[in-house]
Computed example of a mutant assay.
Amino acid sequence: MPDATDADGLTVGQVSTRLGVTVRALHHWDEIGLARPSLRTAAGYRLYTAGDLERLHRIAVYREIGLGLDRIQAILDDSTADVPGALRAQRAQVAERIDRLQQLSAGLDRMIDAHERGLLLTVEQQAAIFGPQWNPDWPAQARQRYGDTTQWLQYAERSASRGPEEWQAIADAIAGLDRALGDAMDAGVTPGSPEANQLVERHREVFASYFPLTRQMQVCLGRRFEADPAFAAHYDGIRAGLATWFRRIIDASARAHGIDPDTATWQ
């Protein structure tokens, strides 16, 4: 390596600043023979010439578009290398990454909307799926009341991936459970019986469409089904007294699993 004065080339630090490449990267490229400085000062410091800088610039460009160092070295040092072919192949990979990033962006948009709105359906879709008794203001009211809870986050994450078909399946499952509850009450099914306990488990499974429901949380819901006027009206509209009967079968199932309904909390 020829000697030179400081005026004949650029130091590693100067090249790093000019090209926006780290000193560590320059040292690594030097070590693997990808881009070695051509000059050395009398004091032993390596310097990059204008030709070295041109090669470094090309390396930086190729790195920016995602080419690996081995591929870059082949392009720079092999006169027979198919540079346009390599760049076309890299362009195809970039296009695939762009597509994946666009999908990710769309998914993030849906997740944000789900956290803020809860239900990613139009008012018309909500009415068609949940029926004329559905109030489209309910999701916003639920977010205002529960938006800072873990359960709302879980609900939103599930909601973000659902379209009308998935929500229709959930609505059908809930309607089927409501009918089964009314039929069981009519048939004289008693709290604590296998039939009643099976319905309680079915409720937990259906409700898991919104968020995971522990048995203690289910007890708390049972209380609300009976005490809250809107919930009570829903269940008692199916069968008179169903809200209380539903709460009783939930409590009986909880006792069978070692939970005292009188002291159960939302956990």
Rank of each mutant, 00 (worst) to 15 (best):
M1G: 15
L10H: 08
G13D: 13
R18Y: 09
T22C: 06
T22W: 04
T22K: 07
V23Y: 01
G33K: 11
A35D: 00
A35F: 00
P37D: 03
P37F: 02
S38Y: 04
L39A: 04
R40N: 11
T41P: 12
A43F: 12
Y45K: 08
R46N: 04
E54I: 10
L56A: 01
R71M: 01
I72L: 01
I75S: 05
L76I: 11
T80Q: 14
V83M: 01
A89K: 06
R91C: 08
Q93A: 12
V94K: 06
R97T: 15
I98S: 03
I98L: 12
S105D: 13
R110L: 10
I112K: 11
I112T: 15
D113R: 12
H115N: 10
R117S: 07
P132Y: 12
P132H: 10
P136S: 01
D137N: 11
W138N: 10
W138H: 10
A140I: 11
Q141S: 13
R143V: 12
R145T: 15
E157T: 15
R158F: 10
G163L: 08
W167H: 14
A175D: 04
G176V: 02
D186F: 11
A187M: 12
G188F: 08
G188Y: 07
V189E: 05
V189L: 07
G192E: 03
S193N: 06
E195K: 10
V200N: 02
E201L: 04
R204E: 11
E205L: 13
R215P: 01
Q218D: 13
V219H: 02
G222D: 06
H234E: 02
R239M: 01
R239Y: 02
A240R: 14
L242V: 04
D251C: 10
S253F: 08
Q267F: 14
